[in-house]
Design a protein around this nucleic acid. Structure first.
Lengths: 176, 176
DNA sequence: AAAGATTGAGCCATCAATCTTC
DNA sequence: GAAGATTGATGGCTCAATCTTT
């Protein structure tokens, strides 16, 4: 075969990265889901919804903003919030400032659910990701992920407007 | 709040890595799926099934081995292979050496499908992951992913017994 | 009995259509 | 008309039997 190809495919080195990368993409979400399902009986998506609400003012967010935070569609979020509502962890109310918008509001039980689930999930994050990496690799990983995200969707480079306290929640007994 | 906690949660630095990491975990599979769905009308999982078969001897694999390669359950694979069978890209045959096992075997059309889909998918891999990274980061990413995989499932450290040609396929016009 | 594989039921995500408010 | 949100239908994944071969 002549070397007639215009765009090369993947180099050996790239391919040897591609295999484990795909593995992580599939297995890490599954492992996080399993931990949450087992320890708290919620999905990873549900955990992020509770976390988003927990760490914003008044424990509430507009559905569309929460959908961005959870990396999900509005349609999916709507059905998940309905389930969380049935479990008594969230309630809905129209946004007083814009009648088109719906606010998802955390209940006291929902807040408690998040607080209870947080330590176990943080432990899983450390066990699966941060403990096996060096400090330098942890920092590298952040840069790598941000570059990949930007390549996938350049518009979302301006990160979601999170409450700055969101990160601190992971360091406290009582997150807020 | 006193600093009474036993196991710390996540540090600021770790949390600032966690957010984009989750983003990549959700968005990269979605982006790869979309590329394949749009350009080749197959899912990422189906692509990996075709790839696994394409790059093994006789273009065939046992169902259970292919399930490991595709990071999926045997049950899921069985149903996906049924769909690929309907589309004429795979056929099944009992393993002559062990009647319990089923061999999934690529047809000529299935092979052609893989060859046609490969360049576009490789291009996507470069666009989303390798182009935005430095060479050093690409190498780092491999080590990082392998460490994470080992933390999730130490048993799978001995990598799947792939045909060594599997990587070379990404560098050729005609993969095998 | 154990391993490999398949099937069917139930659950969840995706997509299009619909409704309300701006 | 456009944006936010919800609903219903479809397709696919998960889990628990079930079946066959070793």
């Amino acid at each position: 075969v002549e070397t007639t190809q215009q765009t090369p495919l993947l180099t050996d080195e790239e391919f040897s990265t591609w295999l484990p990368l795909i593995g992580v993409m599939i297995k890490l979400p599954a492992a996080l889901n399993e931990q949450l399902q087992r320890d708290a009986e919620i999905s990873h998506f549900e955990f992020w919804a509770l976390m988003g609400l927990s760490l914003h003012e008044n424990h509430s967010m507009r559905m569309s903003d929460l959908a961005v935070l959870t990396n999900g569609s509005l349609s999916r979020l709507s059905q998940v919030i309905s389930r969380l509502e049935k479990r008594g962890w969230v309630r809905r109310a129209p946004d007083p400032t814009d009648g088109r918008c719906t606010l998802a509001i955390l209940t006291g039980e929902g807040w408690q659910k998040f607080v209870d689930a947080l330590p176990g999930h943080s432990e899983a994050a450390r066990r699966f990701v941060f403990d096996p990496l060096t400090k330098a690799q942890g920092r590298q990983l952040r840069d790598i992920c941000e570059r990949v995200l930007h390549a996938i969707d350049p518009d979302l480079t301006d990160k979601p407007n999170l409450n700055p306290d969101i990160g601190r929640a992971f360091q406290r007994d009582t997150p807020c």
